[in-house]
């Protein structure tokens, strides 16, 4: 049984820029019929450019947004329109790591309290003291010194904050983690460290890794799904898609990546198909 399955998933959100003076703003379609399957222990990369709907898809898959059409199954159970009270017990099995750790970590809480919160909320620990001990174990798993437990988020570097975000996500041993652009703001050396950490952790959990960077997805994921304007243009095993991309959009995305090899011809090559021209 797949861990997570989406069939013809649609999502429309209110378009606030087109809001009339009275009444509700019109809905604008974001996701247009997404089909995807995630097996336990698998890692799936979702790639696309800004505005392609990749973050919205991540939100919809974990029911941070309610789909407006299609079905969404989590461990075989239909959660497409499941109300929050029934959804709540399932939430410990699904975790999200946000793009910007500075805005997703409470600035007034110490790292140990940030990590203790999910443990206390889902009754994994009984006392605050126990939670703090577990918080230190979690820091160790993401290779941060235990001394960081008493620090505040603003006292950490970008890479360290992102590790705290990861530690919070793995605290409840979820079945699936969605990581949204979590290495995009980092230096290559920090990025490499976080990618290796994720590689180490994904042996246990299924991972959905949202990114605009195909090179990063290639290094980390088993399968890849290419999203363009809310629709899947291509998906399959990384080995296959990267070696033989079928869709012109995938080919355009790949050829636009400047590989670190000196080559004078690349910059003059105009290989973007007309439909993806910005």
């Amino acid at each position: 049984m797949p861990l997570l399955a989406a069939r013809d998933l649609h999502l429309a959100l209110p378009d606030r820029s087109a809001r009339p003076l009275f009444g509700r703003p019109p809905l604008t379609p974001i996701l247009k019929g997404i089909d995807l399957v995630l097996e336990p222990g698998e890692s799936l990369g979702i790639v696309g450019e800004s505005g392609s709907g990749k973050t919205s898809l991540g939100h919809a898959l974990l029911r941070l947004l309610e789909p407006t059409g299609g079905t969404l199954l989590f461990e075989g159970r239909d959660i497409t329109h499941l109300p929050e009270p029934q959804l709540r017990p399932l939430r410990e099995g699904m975790q999200f790591i946000f793009q910007d750790p500075l805005s997703s970590l409470n600035p007034r809480h110490r790292v140990e309290d940030i990590l203790a919160q999910p443990l206390l909320a889902f009754l994994r620990v009984k006392t605050r003291k126990e939670a703090r001990i577990r918080a230190r174990e979690l820091l160790e798993r993401v290779h941060l010194p235990a001394a960081f437990a008493t620090r505040y988020p603003h006292e950490l570097s970008g890479g360290q904050r992102q590790r705290v975000g990861i530690a919070r996500a793995i605290a409840l041993k979820p079945r699936v983690i969605v990581a949204d652009e979590i290495v995009s703001g980092l230096d290559v050396s920090t990025q490499a460290q976080i990618l290796l950490l994720l590689k180490e952790l994904k042996r246990e959990d299924a991972l959905i890794f949202i990114s605009h960077d195909l090179s990063v997805v290639r290094v980390l994921c088993d399968r890849v799904l290419v999203l363009q304007q809310g629709a899947v243009v291509e998906q399959g095993p990384c080995g296959q898609i990267f070696a033989r991309p079928q869709h012109p959009y995938t080919r355009a995305l790949l050829s636009a990546i400047p590989l670190p090899d000196p080559e004078t011809g690349w910059i003059d090559r105009d290989d973007l198909p007309v439909e993806v021209r910005p």
């Binding site: 290559v188 990025q191 490499a192 460290q193 290796l196 090179s215 290639r218 670190p260």
Partner: peptide, 15 residues
């Protein structure tokens, strides 16, 4: 330390 899509076999090495 720079990931590249054309060389998946090469292990990424942090600095």
């Amino acid at each position: 330390a720079t990931p590249r899509y054309d060389r998946p076999g090469e292990a990424l090495q942090p600095i």
